[in-house]
Design a binder for these strands. Sequence first.
DNA 1: ATGCAATTGCAAATGATTTGCATTATTCCT
DNA 2: AGGAATAATGCAAATCATTTGCAATTGCAT
Lengths: 152, 152
Amino acid sequence: MIGIEQRVAIFEGQLKQAGLRMTQQRRLILRILAEAHDHPDAKGIFTRAFEHDPTLSLSTVYRTMKLLESQGAIERHAFEDGVSRYEHADQQHHDHLIDVETGQVVEFSSPEIEALQAKIAAELGYEIVRHRLELYARKLPKAGRKRVKKDV
Amino acid sequence: MIGIEQRVAIFEGQLKQAGLRMTQQRRLILRILAEAHDHPDAKGIFTRAFEHDPTLSLSTVYRTMKLLESQGAIERHAFEDGVSRYEHADQQHHDHLIDVETGQVVEFSSPEIEALQAKIAAELGYEIVRHRLELYARKLPKAGRKRVKKDV
DNA sequence: ATGCAATTGCAAATGATTTGCATTATTCCT
DNA sequence: AGGAATAATGCAAATCATTTGCAATTGCAT
Ligand SMILES: [Mn+2]
Ligand SMILES: [Mn+2]
Ligand SMILES: [Zn+2]
Ligand SMILES: [Zn+2]
């Protein structure tokens, strides 16, 4: 995981090569994403960024997300509710488990599952380009965990 | 896989128990879905049904899909493009591979993957409620397949 | 056949995302 | 530093799939 400053610098380089410009808004949004440890949606990113720059618009957030995605700087996920959520792309590939009660997103990665997916695709005569694996799950009662009150 | 008439009868019974009514539109849409061998979206279902009943409205399709889903008669999927696609629920659980070139949807099922998912969830302290597994893939050149013309 | 509640069709509302356009900001070049 | 060229922004309006309010219709139990 590289630092935020480096991330900004790298992105600025990519922009320059594409004839695009590094703006205050892009810098800010990129920073917000680099600092985020969750999977915020556009509005969430906007809200956080807005505190640093109250002139920022939601349109710019959307446009920037698209740009960042096209540059491979972030990843976009659409979980069950349909809204796009984002995360920076500087981590190894992983999939997500979503707690259906709390909405909490837990990341995991399984080489076995990845291999199995490739095998299945191959058997069907395909090669995987990308995939989506989401587990919607409920917390398991931990053995020895304090009992929940019944019979009030 | 049971017959269409039976499907309609079963659904009518479920409706009666819920104090709901079997209407011409619901009968028609259910039939369309039972005959469908793909994963049509609301507009697609509407188009097919409209040929049998030009007074049908898209709203009714949406309302009916929601009802059918709540009764467990159909399943809803939202692939990458975001629109909801439906299929009847009288088949065994399966996941989908989407051909990124053609959009074709191929069904598959893998007990190994299902087991692996459950194991992963368990290790994280969760029990899976439902999941989503989609492979976006490209057709593999078949060994011995007729060569594509090059150098025209 | 009658009556009431469920359902429908239509149009308008929603909510997330995109887009047109006039204005502003970056870059590049003297 | 100053200016031109044009990319990017903010805002409002447009999209697009889906939902919803409401008045008119229909299904179904009596
Ligand atoms: Mn993640
Ligand atoms: Mn299917
Ligand atoms: Zn994966
Ligand atoms: Zn599965």
